[in-house]
Design a protein around this nucleic acid. Sequence first.
DNA 1: TCGATCTCGGCAAGAGTCCTTACTAGGATC
DNA 2: GATCCTAGTAAGGACTCTTGCCGAGATCGA
Lengths: 382, 382
Amino acid sequence: MEPPKPSLRLLRQLSDRHVLGVLFEEPALTRAQIATRAGLSKPTVGESVRRLTEAGVVRDTGERTGGRGRAGTILDLVPDLGVALAVSIAPDGVRAEAVDVHGRVVSGATEGLALPTTPDRLERVLPEVVARAAAAAPGAVRVAVVSAADPVDRASGALVHLPDAPFLVGDLSPVPLLAPLVEGEVVVDNDVNWAARAELAAAGPDAAGGGELAYLYLDRGLGCAVVADGVVLRGARGLAGEVAHLVTTGPDGRAGPFTDVIGALGLREGGSTAVDIAAVLGLLEAGDGDAAAAATLDALASAVCGVLAALVALTDPAAVVLGGVWGSHPAFLERVARQVEAMPRRVALRPPAVREQPALAGARQEALRRLREHVVTGSAAR
Amino acid sequence: MEPPKPSLRLLRQLSDRHVLGVLFEEPALTRAQIATRAGLSKPTVGESVRRLTEAGVVRDTGERTGGRGRAGTILDLVPDLGVALAVSIAPDGVRAEAVDVHGRVVSGATEGLALPTTPDRLERVLPEVVARAAAAAPGAVRVAVVSAADPVDRASGALVHLPDAPFLVGDLSPVPLLAPLVEGEVVVDNDVNWAARAELAAAGPDAAGGGELAYLYLDRGLGCAVVADGVVLRGARGLAGEVAHLVTTGPDGRAGPFTDVIGALGLREGGSTAVDIAAVLGLLEAGDGDAAAAATLDALASAVCGVLAALVALTDPAAVVLGGVWGSHPAFLERVARQVEAMPRRVALRPPAVREQPALAGARQEALRRLREHVVTGSAAR
DNA sequence: TCGATCTCGGCAAGAGTCCTTACTAGGATC
DNA sequence: GATCCTAGTAAGGACTCTTGCCGAGATCGA
């Protein structure tokens, strides 16, 4: 919050920052093009380019512009500025991707996992997959951004097991496992939080409702992300959005924790606390033709409505995105929407806009942002 | 989010900002003292002071320092930089205070209101009280920060009536009423949100748990504020924290909206949706000696626990502050704390640190912040 | 074919800012 | 009255941004 001290170094850094920012967006430009795009004068850009070239960040491609007028020298960023890794850890598999400063995915590696996953198997697979993606990428790995399908401790990045909640990925601490493979920081967050960030970016920077969004993820696990002013709420320990124990409406109108209600409806995987997706999808297939199925679905929907009531009451989102296999199922979404109509405070529901690996997409964004930040601070250091 | 363009004006502004910042904190200093406190060189401060004196913001007091060595000329801010108003609108009365750039309360005005308050009476009283405080203050009113004991629409600043919730202050739109009396902006927010900001400031900038806090206000009205990363959640419409319809545990373990549960316990003011404070306090007086009272209190506490469960699940605060007449009552707090022990996810509870007009205190802080920002941007404009 | 035009990159000048160093002025202390 | 100490200012150096100008090279049009 402290304003920076006035100094000439500050101006220099700002110039370099602008020039790099333009080159991130468009990989090959002349000095004059950079000047107009950045809104700076030509000499300023020329000086900045000289500094950045000396620092080994920018180079002369050797190419020249055609067209009228004097040929411009085309500049670009040196190709070995490094990459950032986006890693997704889900119970069914691990995927790692490397992005370069322009946001291009330059390598990737995947490894499927047989269910149930054991922690020690993951501890072997995770570094192996990440190492594969890193090896295939051109340049050093500056940062890694990890998405995990379990609650994440904000301070340590370790996965946390909450009582009565399924521990899908299991006892794992990605930070120490990946730190040897990464030059800089290893950032870990929950998959739903990443998905919400991807959703937010997909909505555009100035979408209606601003940055006020909630993302309720209903799959084998239950999760939720709250976006306020464009930022995902993390909470003191990083456990914001872990809705398993939220008190909601159960069968027969009795109050109980969300996870217990799902258990009481007989929708848990045998003996575990995970949601039995197959059972829920089965009910949705049966639909209104089967009275018992419809009743169970209504009970499930009203439990979800209790969660929505809490979301609306506490965070007042412009819209709630219903994600996850059964959460985003049209028949279920419609069922919930009907019940929302009867709630004293309604809220808009919609399915997710990002459907392909939303958590990985969110992690990729953040990886890119951090990689660029790394390059900027690294080259504008002194 | 865009970084500012590098320019010499930027440096100038930064210098002036630092100098003013120091003078806000300590009202009378010499150039040399400013230089050491701001971390700038003496000539830089000298130049900045020259500019600011020319702009009519800083002046030579005429006083000189004693002690050894050359006498220093003591500078201060000119006294007519204006004031900011902090206004509190509660059902029992309106209070307005003016603060100057140093954070001193320089004038105030109060007007009690007989219950029940009628909107048209408030529409007369509010501008009158504000005008009185403004008249008694030295200098023009730059901004006004208003606290209202009802939900506030984020876009318009108007008070909003939610179904089944008491409308304590009533249909009122402070912005158009006060705009004629104020040069700049009129900012309105809910009283609980202001109280939470005051609480946050009282905890110190780097308190344990960072800026993760929740403030549950239990009084005639029910309110809640969620602080994430030091910022109060407002929500899309500004209705974040309006917990009346949050689904919680009711009598006999049935699920229902918080406000309905209180109604079912017979704790509403006759015919209205407001909480009957006297009744609740009566129960708390009776205490454990009276079995029926104890049972009702336990039911009330478990309803509050449902709200806490939602708070913890969705926002994961480091601690929850229980405020309001009955919320902060030690006997009630202890009762809730006992039940929290049995919850799957516990949370620390504590009474508010700011007890004297917390909402007004929060509004005062913000009024000061905005006044200073106004002075800084105004004088460093060109 | 040849000149006009256009564009890019670089240079020079001018203005402005910060910092360091050094100096002056004025009072208190001895 | 000499000495010391401190505040404020002046001078010089180092830099940066901006404006304006010029030359180089290529295209376009007559």
